[in-house]
């Protein structure tokens, strides 16, 4: 137990230093713009199909599942408002972030891990190229910006799924559905939910890069890096979410 705690606190300290370096390097000149755009494409665009499917199903299922409870009170007309609130405030950000942790953090962890193991990162360093700036800064920044966009996209697709779900039992037209939805959502619901997604994205990128960069030698460590990147990133998403919810509760 003691060594476990020791390892954890060591790792958190090391991760913090690794993350602080991001803020040091990002303001230095000669930003790797091309690599950044490439990472946005890989992290953002390539995740669209997965996010589309999962968020559509989330919206649909959530609507269907809340019908029995709501109809007990004769409150079926509240379903769009309720579903959209829980989607936007909580479910879409967290589920999308978890999906991204599975796809992006593991991808980055495996990619950088294998670069580390096959000495490609060392090769960059001896060529006087800063591997942190080229590989890490670009990936963390891309993840920080792409995850919020993916979440907003997931909100929309989720609402669309909800529309289909509502229509399975009755006939609500699209305009009426969305007017009900937007009536129930306030600006204050969207802002904190969006702010936390930047943190989700940052930590997904950071943990993926950290695990990859610290892979030890040997091919099996590539798998380990990818695996522990997913586990730690998912865990960090729940922790950030808990903190974010408490803060929002206090402030608003």
């Amino acid at each position: 137990m003691e060594t476990f705690l020791k390892n954890i606190s060591y790792e958190i300290g090391d991760l913090s230093l690794f993350g602080l370096r991001f803020f040091e390097e990002i303001f230095r000149p000669s930003f790797e713009f091309k690599e950044f755009i490439r990472q946005c494409y890989v992290i953002g665009y390539k995740s669209l199909p997965l996010v589309s499917i999962t968020s559509f199903i989330m919206g649909l299922v959530l609507t269907i599942q809340s019908r029995p409870a709501m109809s007990k009170f004769g409150a079926e007309s509240w379903i769009p408002g309720m579903v959209s609130l829980s989607l936007i405030r909580e479910i879409a950000p967290v589920i999308t972030a978890l999906i991204c942790a599975g796809k992006i953090a593991s991808g980055i962890g495996a990619e950088l891990g294998s670069m580390k193991v096959t000495e490609q990162i060392d090769a960059m360093e001896v060529s006087a190229i800063n591997p942190y700036r080229y590989l890490v800064v670009t990936r963390i920044l891309a993840a920080t910006l792409m995850v919020p966009i993916l979440v907003i996209y997931a909100d929309l697709i989720g609402l669309l799924g909800g529309y289909i779900g509502v229509n399975m039992h009755g006939d609500v037209n699209l305009v009426l559905y969305f007017s009900e939805v937007f009536e129930s959502i306030k600006f204050l619901d969207i802002i904190p939910a969006t702010i936390k997604t930047f943190f989700f994205g940052f930590f997904i990128g950071l943990i993926g890069c950290y695990k990859g960069f610290n892979a030890s030698s040997g091919t099996e460590s590539v798998g380990k890096a990818a695996n522990s990147a997913v586990v730690s990133a998912s865990l960090s998403i729940f922790i950030i979410d808990m903190i974010a919810v408490q803060l929002t509760d206090l402030l608003f």
Partner: peptide, 23 residues
Amino acid sequence: IYELNKVRMNIGFLFQNGALYDS
């Protein structure tokens, strides 16, 4: 690191397994 990088620009390094960037 900046001074070291200036020196490194004059050094070529062949790694044991090539270490080509595979992307």
